[in-house]
Design a protein around this nucleic acid. Structure first.
Lengths: 193, 193
DNA sequence: CGTGAGATTGATATATCTCAACAGAAGTGG
DNA sequence: CCACTTCTGTTGAGATATATCAATCTCACG
């Protein structure tokens, strides 16, 4: 927890797959504030682009909690990609997916107000926005990190969580969030700025 | 000008290269507000990802002014990419570049205040931030579009332009911007939020 | 049980968005 | 070539949401 897997500018030694835990990919300004690009959870992979065309990592990767990873060696996968068409396709696909997700992130920031972003995030963490009955879950990252991921101050995150609780949409007890009213939550999540 | 090249969800018929003019790539919310991903100018290409792995355009492309384009046919380039390694490399490279630029865009929004973003934009339009003596230039897009690209209200853009003029850093006459003091401009551009 | 980091709550400031009015440019048509 | 309309840009005034700062509070851990 808190350990850096790599930092912006480090020479790439491959890409990674999260086995357990969460890795927060982010940029840092000289003043010390951070911009979270995405937090990768179980079964997600990242940094494929450093295998295909960049040689340095273009951002920082930091563990939000105890995390287990697999590293896919750069030279090894490059050799494989050279002969196997399917491997190349997978890599390209992953990169395009990252591009798409980044656009979604930007969209969320632009179109949704903070409360909607929190609601959307809760639904996603609870098993996807489209699942009929999203289950409850534990926040594995510090709330600070979640707030950063959702582009708001941690105080704002706290307040929005309270607001949703007071509307009877969720229950909060420390790190555990129970989804009480998925429908209402979905409504809030689709409200525009 | 104002014409849509494609809209979000349209089936891809290839990618594009801007020959003259400017294409604004953007997302629209149901409420009608837009988030500009990037404005592509002369010699820039976009939508390569729809050739590699997506089949639909994931955003809207609209001409900001009279624009001349080349379309690279999807099937044709796919056939070429299949046999030529270099073509694949170029496509991957372009996509990764778009990814990197999108991250820069996000970074700018997060770390820089509106005035810094305007200053940075002026330097870039005037021939790149690192050029010794950036030249003056004409704004080819409506100022509204530029403001959207820089994530601010058009009124704010107008005011920041005035602020920079009053500080003696630039001259503004209608669509023409003269860079008077590049050094001072660079200073403003690197101020953090 | 004490300690300290993380989380909550409260109070406040302020920068930007919004709305509204105006001005100027550019295009249209007689 | 000049009135007329329309669109774009500029200016002003004001509201408001969220960041910020500061003060507890809580929980996990030693």
């Amino acid at each position: 927890k808190g350990e850096y897997l790599f930092r912006e500018g480090d020479c790439s030694s491959g890409f990674y797959i999260v086995n357990r835990g969460a890795i927060r990919l982010h940029k840092l300004s000289s003043g010390g504030s951070q911009q979270v690009l995405k937090t990768f959870k179980e079964r997600e992979s990242f940094a494929e682009s450093t295998v295909v065309s960049l040689s340095c990592y273009p951002a920082n990767a930091c563990a939000d909690c105890t995390t287990v990873l697999a590293r896919v060696d750069k030279l090894g996968i490059q050799r494989l990609a050279h002969s196997r068409d399917a491997i190349r396709q997978c890599l390209s696909g992953a990169i395009v997916r990252h591009l798409t997700e980044l656009v979604s992130h930007l969209e969320g920031r632009a179109f949704l107000n903070p409360e909607s972003r929190v609601a959307k995030w809760i639904l996603e963490e609870g098993g996807g926005v489209f699942v009929e009955n999203p289950r409850s879950f534990e926040i594995i990252s510090p709330k600070q990190s979640v707030a950063d991921e959702l582009d708001m101050a941690s105080e704002t995150f706290s307040r929005k969580l309270r607001s949703l609780r007071e509307k009877g949409l969720i229950n909060v007890s420390n790190k555990r969030i129970d989804i009480v009213n998925p429908v209402g939550l979905r409504e809030i999540a689709s409200e525009e700025r």
